[in-house]
Design a binder for these strands. Sequence first.
DNA 1: CCCGTGGTCTGACGGGTCGTCAGGTTCCGG
DNA 2: CCGGAACCTGACGACCCGTCAGACCACGGG
Lengths: 217, 217
Amino acid sequence: MATARAGGDARAGGRVPGRRGSATRGRLLECTASLLAGTGYRDLTVADIARCAATSPATFYQYFTDVEGAVLELAAELGDGLGPVVDRITTGDWTGEGGLEVARRVVQGFFDYYEEHRSVYRVVDLAAGEGDLRFRQARTRVLAAVTEALVGAIGRSRPGAGVDGEATAYVLVSMLVNSAAHRYGMEFWGVRTSRQVDALARIVHAAVTGAGSGPPA
Amino acid sequence: MATARAGGDARAGGRVPGRRGSATRGRLLECTASLLAGTGYRDLTVADIARCAATSPATFYQYFTDVEGAVLELAAELGDGLGPVVDRITTGDWTGEGGLEVARRVVQGFFDYYEEHRSVYRVVDLAAGEGDLRFRQARTRVLAAVTEALVGAIGRSRPGAGVDGEATAYVLVSMLVNSAAHRYGMEFWGVRTSRQVDALARIVHAAVTGAGSGPPA
DNA sequence: CCCGTGGTCTGACGGGTCGTCAGGTTCCGG
DNA sequence: CCGGAACCTGACGACCCGTCAGACCACGGG
């Protein structure tokens, strides 16, 4: 296939990977992730990455077009890991009282997942928001499995109802992502994580099943 | 009060503003906002801002400690503008069928508001997520009015119920913010804005009033 | 009308990063 | 032992950063 390289991948004009090459490439990626988690994206620099990987900046450019190329690579590996969350959504029994517990575990699973990838995900979110197509695509791909699982759960839970499963699933995922991202910000404000998880679970549960919890309108 | 300057403000060691000074300072801020909207944060540079404002980079540093200082300043002016949204939350009648319409207008108002400030807000979100206290504080302050209004609405709508108003309001706001931020990303995926607004409105309405829309559990 | 004072601007600089060559080094099969 | 492919890097011009000291206003008092 002559599909154009989306960018961010190795540049070396069509070279074969090779043993040693993949090693340094991997080391470069590790260092990128590590520095991203440490100092943050705003002052992540090629020079630093190269220093950390005990190699020269020039080498970096042999494998990635720029810093964002490396981050994009990390973003690609980001999709895996949401499997457990997807399972809980798909195989869980959303009906009755247990439904709320399913929702709670989904939310908790998402929080756990996010915790390991916050630094990478943050950049993806920023770049996607700024309109960068590569990152927008990466973001979509990462969250696709969860979104689709939610669409399925909604469709099964309330068939025929006048609800827009796709749109609902999408905004639910947005809620999960942003809540997880600003989890500590909320704690700083006095709202503990457990309370967040609970509130999120109620909303997810209500949105998926259509169940209410207050006085009937 | 000897409260330490949070940073981001003018540096000139305690100088008085002055006529001409405020002018260039304003021009600098305008250019920052403009470039932020245009080229995005990832390659926003002091040199560019200075060029745009027809002045020298050195002048920039006379008014702000660095690029983020200027953005932080823009973030401070960000809180105003959410007044209409707050009003709709506070004065709207959430009961009965009309409640859903109130929710819809709240969501739409938030989308409109966000549209004018996306570029600035994006940076605030990133920096806050990375733990920067100045930005975390700014973010809290910007969203505080809406969050509090929602807390009030929830408390009025379902007093005594076992719901955590604060946590619920906070995650609802997270949902609104992130949905607005990735509005175009969703459209790209085939979900039109009107559908997003509708889905968001249903969720907000359900969370505030406790009303359900599906078969009773 | 001139002049001084204090607010305002900037040229210039050392230090650092960026992205890219051309050419050196390492590895491996023959 | 040797040739070539894969891999690495020194070095370079361009640019940005952040910070001085000193030049440039502007305005009110003499």
